[in-house]
Write a protein that binds this DNA or RNA. Sequence first.
DNA 1: AAGACTTACAACCGCGTGAAA
DNA 2: GTTTCACGCGGTTGTAAGTCT
Length: 366
Amino acid sequence: MGGGRKPCCDKTGLKKGPWTPAEDLRLISFIRMHGHGNWRALPKQAGLLRCGKSCRLRWTNYLRPDIKRGNFSQEEEETIIKLHESLGNKWSKIASYLPGRTDNEIKNVWNTHLKKRLELKEPNPDGNESKESSITSSSSFSNSSVSYENQDKEMENGEQAHPGSMSQSPPPDMVIMGKNEDPLVELVPIEPSVNIWEIFDDSIDNEREKVGDKAKELSNSSSFSSTTCSYSSDVPNSNHIDPSIPEIILEIPFEPNLNFWDMLDDDQNFFTSNEVQICELEGHQHSTIEEEHNRDFESRRWVTYLENELGLLATSEDNQESLTWDATDQPLDPCSSSDETLWKAEIDPVATYFQTSPSSPHSLSL
DNA sequence: AAGACTTACAACCGCGTGAAA
DNA sequence: GTTTCACGCGGTTGTAAGTCT
């Protein structure tokens, strides 16, 4: 055969540029349901107008559940510097020593911060680096830092780190860095990540629980997210699509202006405020357990709302069948009285969130 | 206040490589 | 053994956001 290298895919008609929330959602839900055994075929199966490469990149660099977002710690930066000394520009190799960090992210950090810092340091090795290093460690991620703190507190309150992240890693608060053969063995703290999977997991798992035979396997835990553990093992890495898993990702219209990332980024505030309103309406007290309960509830409702906004709920009969959990099944939560109206009324002001710019994870770092 | 400039990072592109046919 | 396919990697680019003047 031969004839030179073929392009990775037929680019005609394919979308390029920033991903929209709808695309993200579609990709996430598809991978969540079917895994990503074949990136080339994935966009077609998922109904995405992207090439497989683009999907893979988006997933591995941004949407993967074990991505740790936010600023690089001093330890991480030092690790990168050391590893770069010995490995050079082997970003993926370096990334393998930094759980939750992607090669792309590390590459960017190196090119934007660390390289410059080292260049600055070299002529004056005695110079104090603390000032420079603070550029990356503290400059641009205040919001996510706050979220980390919140999550830390939540975990102190007994909630486990999201099991979907770092599923292959040692205990969530600390991991042994480095492989056996490598001299670079360090302990690097792993911060819990701001994780949209806490939302997606819950909603999607709920759907599976309610419509599929897999339900019983998944729903035997009393805690909210513990059934969603070990994402990476949860996602089948094969081409096989389990016919028993209901298809729920089919008809998401592309809405480039939806900005659910902002909401996700802001979910602390967002959910809290709505939580307060709803619970005030319904006379709930704010015990810790109830807060968790309510937040989970709001998360689910928000996803429902999002799906509704995206047209996911009402586009195909099949989908509808599998997506009626919020309307036909028993309430998801004691707080829920199936008052979609109330929910929409509460949420509508937030809909303005959806109408600004295309989604950008930047907001995480602002 | 507005334009210019800089920074940070998501995304794209092309190539290398291993597996399968 | 050769060819093709698919994936992953590293370099580069585009652009939004932030800062400076």
